[in-house]
Design a protein around this nucleic acid. Structure first.
Lengths: 246, 246
DNA sequence: GCCACCTGAGTGGTCCGACCACTACGAGTA
DNA sequence: TACTCGTAGTGGTCGGACCACTCAGGTGGC
């Protein structure tokens, strides 16, 4: 009903966004290709440069386009990582019960990804997993631990052979998200438990045992999930006023 | 550390986006709340209205803000559905091997969601599932079938009790995505098979049998997955690692 | 008294033109 | 040949003007 073909539907900018998206979807614009200048594009669609800039900005934050100052506007590679960067925004802006939901999704995907990785992981990838595991255990700096923890799981997700899933999991473990949740979690002396869980995951990967890997990963994320749930059960999180029973 | 806190990092617009996002993350802007006018906001951050408009447009497409012509700018409810609308863009712009990856993710999430739903689904929800199932079988109009198919799975996802997962699954089954893939799939006379699979899912839900529900849902999505894989098999077989039966 | 209508201030939407900051390429030079 | 440096062209920012729409408050009729 609200589909194209009609003279005009929403705002001019919105139409411009759809037009460019359509051009990419139809293959008239290839990944990496350079677009005409803002001025030319605006003229082509018969709109002002301001409106065209808003459309470009919108597609930029969506990871579809990339603007290089002084050079031009380009279509991104359109790979999973480019497009799913916005997933981090969801994680950053979620609070309360939705955080638990996000962790539940991560548990489901991460456990499956780890199981797949156990079956497919190569020697090189396994070595990289071990590298991050060792680095994680060799320092006490929270920042460094989080960084290697992230990389640890990323290697596994990639080894699972699904780039899109790896990108989603990366968004679900974004720096700020992890920092927010883990700050409290780790303060309760969860370091030792985390190390044990990571070791269990590594063991299952090395043994190429998918079921053990699935269980270990599920337990790993599940621990955080349970803790977070308990956190906002009795009292809501600090900063937010009052538990909202929507 | 990674930024100089004081002077400036990226573009003016980018900074404005971060500022507003931060205001929301810190709770200084509540869901549903109205923001100052574009002109005031621009003045507050010391930037031009044009740049502020680009920032607002960016946050609008991300589902964080909502602009109502003549009324004002408001923070959305910030619920999963609002923020994950952009997920549909990923599905719409993905082609070739990435489509299979997306279907694999949908298979994983959908099977788990269906299993959860089997355990939790209420009588009312089950009735709604049956309603869409009947409507789906009562027509030959592809558009209508797709609509009820979508609603069928949506009810199940909601019954699983994870709104975020339901929103993601909705994005993975967006109208255009489904239309693109299913056009070819259904042309091969998959109607009968689809009906049988839907019936199996419903049966498992009615019996409150999670394992049967998981299997039925996985098979349902897996069928499309296999078909799609075969479609682009002969043409391009990129550097994916060996096929592993899951 | 009540309700429909109208008006106007205020808001987002669009356009324009100017200038700045940066990149890329090629002419000029050593 | 290799390097430097200018410059045309690009995205980034700004300010102002006007249009399209919403909504509250007043106005008029009933």
């Amino acid at each position: 009903m609200d589909d194209e073909t009609a003279p005009q539907k929403g705002t001019v900018t919105q139409r411009a966004i759809e037009r460019i998206k359509a051009m990419i979807a139809e293959g008239r614009l290839e990944p990496g290709q350079r677009l005409p200048t803002e001025r030319d594009l605006a003229a082509q669609l018969g709109i002002s440069r301001s409106s065209m800039r808003e459309a470009i900005r919108a597609l930029t934050v969506l990871g579809v386009l990339e603007a290089r100052h002084g050079s031009g506007i380009y279509v991104t590679r359109l790979e999973a990582g480019d497009l799913l960067e916005t997933f981090g925004v969801v994680a950053d802006l979620s609070r309360g019960p939705r955080l638990v939901e996000l962790l539940e999704i991560r548990r489901i995907l991460e456990s499956t990804a780890t199981a797949l990785a156990a079956a497919r992981i190569s020697g090189d990838e396994l070595a990289e997993v071990e590298k991050h595991l060792a680095a994680m255990n060799a320092t006490e700096d929270p920042e460094e631990i989080i960084a290697h923890d992230l990389a640890f799981h990323r290697v596994i997700a990639v080894a699972a052979g699904n780039e899109t899933m790896a990108a989603i999991l990366e968004g679900l473990s974004s720096r700020t998200f992890r920092a927010r949740v883990w700050r409290g979690y780790q303060e309760e002396g969860a370091f030792a438990r985390t190390r044990r869980e990571h070791a269990a995951i590594h063991r299952a990967l090395a043994a190429h045992d998918p079921e053990a890997a699935r269980a270990a990963a599920a337990a790993h994320v599940g621990e955080v999930e349970q803790w977070l749930w308990a956190q906002l059960g009795p009292q809501d999180m600090p900063g937010a006023r009052g538990a909202v029973a929507t």
